[in-house]
Each structure stands twice: as C-alpha cells, then as structure tokens.
C-alpha cells in the first residue's frame, strides 16, 4: 500500500524539528525530502522516503547482517 524508496541524504537544513529537511539522492535523481521524522539522520545516511517524507533511517549494519545470514544459508544449507 505504501511505496517507500531508499535514498541517500546529501545535505540537511533547518534546525526547527517540524521543518527539518534535506536533499536526498535516488540513483542520480535528487529531491527535497522532509526529515522531521528521522531526527537522527545525517548527511551520508540512507533513508526510506514515502510521499516526500523520510519515515526511517535505514540501518546499514542490520542490512549487511541479514544479507550475510542469507549468504550463509547457501553454504550452510539451512538457516533455521
């Protein structure tokens, strides 16, 4: 129901929590995105964007861990 797309924060502006926003890059397409809901997100972070709002900072370490687990599933035969 909800299209949300990963993008990388290129710049952050606005100190007011309600209007914190930044430029986010989606594979070479940049758009201004509201960052009010991801106060922890800084330049260089990946965020998940829905209708012009970042709704999460993507946890790169966690993503790596999950893909590692899935890779091990290949050689280990079973990840359960």
């Amino acid at each position: 129901m909800c299209l949300a797309v990963p993008g990388r924060v290129e710049s952050v502006e606005g100190s007011d929590p309600l209007e914190r926003r930044g430029s986010v890059d989606f594979g070479g397409v940049r758009r201004e995105v509201q960052l009010a809901f991801v106060p922890e997100a800084e330049r260089g972070d990946w965020v998940l964007v829905h209708v012009g709002f970042a709704i999460a900072r993507i946890d790169e370490d966690e993503a790596e861990r999950m893909l590692d687990e899935l890779e091990r599933m290949e050689t280990g035969g079973d990840a359960r």
Binding site: L3, V5, G7, D25, F26, G27, G28, V29, R31, V49
Partner: peptide, 13 residues
C-alpha cells in the same frame, strides 16, 4: 535502464 531513470521510476512508482 540507467540509474537516474530507475531512481525516478522507483520514486514515483
């Protein structure tokens, strides 16, 4: 499909 075209397509579905 080049990255900017993909990025735009992902962004607006």
């Amino acid at each position: 499909v080049s990255n900017p075209v993909r990025g735009l397509c992902e962004l607006i579905g």
